[in-house]
Design a protein around this nucleic acid. Sequence first.
RNA 1: GCGGACGUGGCGGAACUGGCAGACGCACCGGCUUUAGGAGCCGGCGCCGAGAGGCGUGGGGGUUCGAAUCCCCCCGUCCGCACCA
Length: 847
Amino acid sequence: MVAARLVASRAMSLTPDPFADPAGPTRYDPQTIEARWQQRWQDEGTYQVDNDDPRPPFYVLSMYPYPSGPAHMGHVRNYTMGDLLVRYRTMRGDGVLSPIGFDSFGLPAENAAIQTGTHPRVHTERNIEALSASLRRIGAVYDWRRMVKSHDPSYIRWTQWIFLKFYEAGLVYRDTAPVNWCPGCQTVLANEQVLGDGTCERSSDLVERRDMEQWFYRITAYAQELLDDLDEVHWPEKVKVMQRHWIGRSEGAEFGLAIADSAGNARTDVEPLAVFTTRPDTSFGMTFAVISPEHPRVDELTTDAHRAEVEAFRSSVAGRSEIDRLSTEGALDKRGVATGGRVVNPFTGQAIPIFLADYVLMTYGTGAIMAVPGEDQRDWDFATVHGCDIIRTVQPPDDFEGEAYVGDGPAINSSFLNGMKVTEAKATAITWLEENGHGVGKVNYRLRDWLLSRQRYWGCPIPIVYCDDCGQQPVPEDQIPIEPPDDVEFMPTGRSPLTTHEGFLSANCPSCGKSARRETDTMDTFVDSSWYFLRFADPWNDQAPFSADAARRWLPVDQYIGGVEHAILHLMYARFFTKALADLGVAPQSLREPFQRLFTQGMIRLGGSKMSKSKGNLVAPEDILDKQGADALRLAHLQVKPPQEDVDWEDFGIDGCAKFLNRVWRLAVPGSDLTKVVRSGDETEADFNVDRAAHRLVARITDEYDRWSYNTAIAGFMEFTNMLYRYVQEEDGPHAETLDSAVDALLLVMAPAAPHLCAELWELRRGDQVHLEAWPAADPSKLLDDNVTMVVQVNGKVRDRLEVPSDVDEAGAIERALACEKVVAILAGGEPRKVIARPPKLVNVVV
RNA sequence: GCGGACGUGGCGGAACUGGCAGACGCACCGGCUUUAGGAGCCGGCGCCGAGAGGCGUGGGGGUUCGAAUCCCCCCGUCCGCACCA
């Protein structure tokens, strides 16, 4: 019979093209239908949502991209996932906010300007066009009316406005700081532009540290809240752990070590040397102190006899890159030098030597430490090399074989602390320090303030002017935005053209009105990305960056999607901005976190290494869009691997996905040869089974979409399609209505993943838009077949499989299992020792 | 060194709370159809074995009627942090 039908179909498709799809006149033609539907979604504003939309609000956001040109595969992966969710939630009945924008400031455009002479604005706008076109071509849908661009004057204005608000609130300040200076590029680099080996990503020059006056956001003011509120968000544990580590809270004590005179007695006429420790309980074992080579009191504490040596050490450290200096290679060789100076250990009254060592960092704690070699391996190593005493103050266990002992145990050699365990000894030592006026218990954070100024042109100018008389003055609100001027020349000096642009530089002092000079630094582009998700809620607002009401409606973002490479910087900065804006009354007070849920999707690699423009190993999505189409590309991205995992391009099965889409087309398109012979009348058992399979499909896909199991959802589509192929080729043909509703179910659940194909087929079949349909609900009573396969095990090994009614009870299951041939043979008339029944899935007979 | 994730066929992976290991796809093999196939449809496909059967989720132990899944000890891979006192 199959043969008969195929013969018939050949007769029907008399086509001169020998490669024609046997589906006949309506071939699956992705190029045509994709372009058509993309146009329609845009023209009809299908995914536009207003702020008074009556549906429940749901905010889906993919991290806004830096416009580097047409989309690359990483973009496709990211925006495909976001788009799937937007379409799925919309079908679920939500009013989904799906905005898009561009992180359009940044160094690459400036580099391009130097190389090609194209103005960064022109270059950037061109790239935005190209990237927007790419996003449309993969079928991603947005409310384009809400688009924001970092470099747009209406966005600059509010970025600067927020800066001024923060300035007013003391959350911005200017200070001297060591920065990454690239001698080749003649500019300061952002941390992320310094490669792991300490060189510049662009020029490959070794990056130097230089002290320069810089602007900072006081993110450390929020250190504790940033740490605590990680418990409130649904983020990957990995990202939370990274943030906790980055914040790096540690509890301990800060106290003063009195400077010793030549006799070893504590001087009262000079300020003691402040140290921070997390182990005040070990203070009796402090046999020396170490200060950072950059410590401001080095000169004062160094004796003349040691001055030459100390100076030599300091200059050798200064010449070394940070990476080199912090290298753990040869960690046992603790580089350091004695200062000749001494301090007094307040616990013992003993004078102990002060050393300089590069393992002590000026940027953490007080830049000085008490060294307790008995309980700290670094100190142990240093003491061994430099001949310092080692006194244990915590009793190690009998079988301890290491050097410094960092575990718990009773205090020894520690006077009033003796016998106490570490926790109690810590508290007691802190109390002692406080009662005797030496110091206090203190919490330290590794997190440092955010250096936001960049010596570059293509960024948001910092709205400050410098007046000879009044000093640094914020630009008044009514004078922003301060925009980067267009008439500038880009020279390969690396020097920002702003520093030589008279028209930009000259300003009047807002305070006294005299002529003044503008700040030429611009903001780190992470500033722009720290609040764009708030602007999306209210992008038309020209009175404020956004209204609190709009923010209250949409924020926090229900689902944020992006790369794990932003686990720390962007996500930390955005959290800080949100909290600060809420405290300043700009955002709702209750908005403590910007992103309720975060999903980090994996990277795409080629040949084992990260695909990137700079590596030149890109696979262009365009080629695949031209050939197999957007739906095939989307499906391949979804199918290849669990979405959170990194994936090799070699593993993508584009052709398999394209083939599958073709199969769906042939199955669903009206008039297909595949469905020519259909049946009406009463349903058979086979029909009921297909119907139940359709309900199971709906339940399964709903669950899988909810838990981001996209790869198995695609498998579900394929499995169901394979089943329907067998069904339509059965001898009597499929039951018309059963088939129709099964295919409809497939198109509905596939619509978020392969939107163009499903939209086209649905329209051909039903005349409506599939994406405006309600998400189907599975009938719980249809999720189970009448009969299921029950596994019969003997001693945990599968010996047989039986068809049983799905509502079989325990007794019935056991009875059938014991009656089956295999079990009877094994029992050989004997009694089973034990029978475990899990009806209707399994019975295990123990003999 | 610390922290995290992970290890399943030739390959990517599936198996949600312990219950049929290998869904789905790729590759490969076979059949049908075809003048032709890099098209379409159907089927096969963990390993050993002629077979019954045995063995199988990095390795070794354990818990359990039953372990890819839980516990302990190793081995390996990837990612992040890396002298933070």
